[in-house]
Design a binder for these strands. Structure first.
Lengths: 222, 222
DNA sequence: TAGTGGTCTAGACCACCAA
DNA sequence: TGGTGGTCTAGACCACTAC
């Protein structure tokens, strides 16, 4: 009846009711274990969960404190675009527009030397769903040169063959501009862009900028 | 030397090298524990971490399988806007534009009855950083009526006083339109909007739409 | 119904770091 | 240097569910 989730809920309640106000220290694990009548490991599990969610901050020797700014985190899935389109009940297709080797622009801070530059479009029911502009670090992805990227999108191939340790993700807005003909909208239409970079350790893998069709929404869950 | 993170790394390696291809079953916890020479709890910790990251899917009795679509998840912090501004080295201010009680529009699917409607602006160095349009379910947030929302932003007050269990988050793009004067930009400028809804169990708490100043980027980490 | 993951326990050792 | 969180162990029981 008293699982770690119950402990978590009770501690969270004390934080939210300000029994334990922001910035204050909370009892150490051993004491809480005694209070709740459970093993310390159970309390540990509960507090780790709260720390991961941003409610408390934990430091050895210093103990645990209620976070001053309870920061909630949102997570959203990074789907293979094909799956995203298919799940919405539309027919997916992929079109390679440009494939060349060259030096990336300065804001793509890769290793020196030529990189693979791709421009492609993801189609949903024949209409352009997303326009993709990608740079790939050939040194980091051996084998990419032999792949027929007209057959399988770089997006999909990389997901399966180029493991990465971390990345960043930035969502912004832009006017359609010279992409207006691609989407069949006015040049001043507001479009969502996503720029994603991935690394394997210190080695950059790829940077991709996706521009989505009018009306596209990037969703996440809290 | 063999902590749960080592186990996690080794299992992840086997997935990425396709020793254990997508969709295949991986050994049960007890077997892995024997193989690695650790306790089952240690293996369990590693596999739970991998499951949380989306690499594997776990089900009782059915065992663990490598996920078919290794979906990476991005997480981004939902900051109190004040903190976001202050961290960028600018001076934060808050301005309440409108506070009224009324019936929310249809797309805000709240309980019947009047809700609190707020329009506010978050300022950075005197310029509008974000325009906020918010509906609050008064029934779900007792005490909100007594708060001076000119002094503390609803954003901040709710974070500390209105616990929620889950929410959604949607990022889109729009033209500045009638907000152009607010941001001092052209009416056809592309702006980022974030719509966020939060619930406490089945009870809706608040829905807020934030429109950010030109150039704003929503960032996340993979 | 049996096999699997989910969790708890009681104890232990260690890494870290503020005092 | 002592107190704290981080983690591992060996064993146990339970909840779920495919069979």
């Amino acid at each position: 009846m008293t699982g770690w989730q119950d402990i978590e809920a009770e501690v969270l309640r004390r934080i939210q009711t300000r029994d334990w106000p922001p910035g204050s220290a909370i009892p150490n694990e051993a004491d809480l274990a005694t209070d709740f009548g459970v093993a310390r490991a159970t309390v540990n599990r509960a507090l780790q969960s709260l720390a991961e969610a941003g409610w408390i901050e934990r430091r050895r020797r210093a103990g645990s404190r209620v976070a001053l700014h309870p920061v909630r985190k949102a997570t959203f899935a990074i789907p293979v675009i094909r799956a995203e389109v298919v799940e919405s009940g539309r027919v997916y297709a992929h079109r390679l527009i440009l494939r060349e080797t060259g030096l990336p622009p300065a804001d793509v801070a890769f290793d020196p030397g030529p990189h693979l530059h791709l421009v492609a479009q993801h189609l949903a029911d024949g209409a352009v769903h997303a326009h993709e502009d990608r740079w790939i670090n050939r040194a980091a992805v051996p084998g990419i040169d032999a792949v027929d990227l007209a057959e399988i999108s770089a997006n999909e191939w990389l997901v399966g063959h180029a493991p990465f340790t971390h990345g960043d993700y930035a969502v912004a807005a832009r006017q359609a501009g010279d992409l207006a003909p691609v989407f069949g909208c006015d040049a001043d239409h507001a479009l969502v862009t996503v720029r994603r970079g991935t690394w394997n350790g210190a080695q950059p893998i790829t940077v991709v900028t996706l521009t989505f069709a009018p009306g596209h929404v990037v969703r996440a869950a809290l």
